[in-house]
Design a binder for these strands. Structure first.
Lengths: 149, 149
DNA sequence: GTGATTGCAAACCTTTTGCACGCCA
DNA sequence: TGGCGTGCAAAAGGTTTGCAATCAC
């Protein structure tokens, strides 16, 4: 049920870099390895703090830039705030969200079939549930038009 | 399907404030009204930019502080980054997330029943779908222990 | 060799904090 | 009147950018 972090695969990493036209540097290798090792969706700073233990002269900017580069190449995903700002939602009744991956727009929707999804037993046993909802990543009509899709 | 923003209800707002021991000020009223009006999960800055048109001497800090106060009282929810930092996820295979609402930890899990939830027709017609996943908000065992739950 | 990448410094943007004044209850 | 809430100023926290030196290819 709960995922184990996949081991770091240097060959797969190298291939991904090559496929995306990215140079393979010791820094990038260390950054990606640490991201895999952490297995906890770290922030750029968390990755940086770990790496500098073995790589004391690495710069934070390198870590941050590399992570963004990986994201742009589809080698990882950004979760929790693509833009880095908090957003506020006054709707307290049960609903779900669409996120436009281009412009960041967040659109509410209701759908009863999503409201009471059965939560896996293994999770119920181990965690205290607060609530649950569905996120659908989309490209909204405005963005689709703008990019001539 | 898609939700219309509920109209601003001054009485309901006043009640909520009183129930939470919050004073009702013109600023707070304007902030909450704008949040409802926007209907698009604005950031603190977006709310501020709108309000200052009619309320030119309001301070950004007031807007931000009020929104956080409302959130603490359960009058609204924070979405997209509770902490304001980006997090990176190297797992590209289908999975879902648990978010601990106390410490911000994000835990992966897989659950086939969640992988291909049927997306509502109305959404399929109107939006280009990128992908979709389930978020379960939890209190993790560490936090539950720490608060003597 | 050449252009991408790094590290430094500084800028930038958003959010938070300290404090005195003012206003709501 | 008492104390919460506001606005100002400044700090803090996180991210981004410009540039020269360096390194991967």
């Amino acid at each position: 049920m709960q995922k184990e972090a996949a081991p770091f695969d240097i060959d797969a990493f190298s291939d991904q870099c090559r496929n995306n036209g990215l140079r393979i540097t010791p820094q990038r290798t260390a950054i990606y390895r640490e991201l895999i090792r952490a297995g906890s969706h770290p922030s750029a700073d968390m990755v940086y703090q770990q790496i500098r233990r073995q790589f004391p002269h690495i710069a934070f900017e390198t870590v941050n830039r590399s992570l963004l580069t990986f994201a742009r190449s589809g080698m990882l995903r950004i979760i929790e705030s693509r833009s880095g700002v908090r957003r506020f939602d006054p709707v307290l009744t049960k609903h779900h969200h669409m996120h436009c991956v281009q412009c960041g727009r967040i659109i509410d929707f209701t759908h009863e079939a999503y409201d009471d999804l059965k939560i896996p037993e293994a999770i119920l046993k181990k965690y205290e549930i607060v609530d649950q909802h569905v996120i659908i990543n989309i490209i909204c009509p405005v963005c689709r038009t703008n990019q001539g899709g």
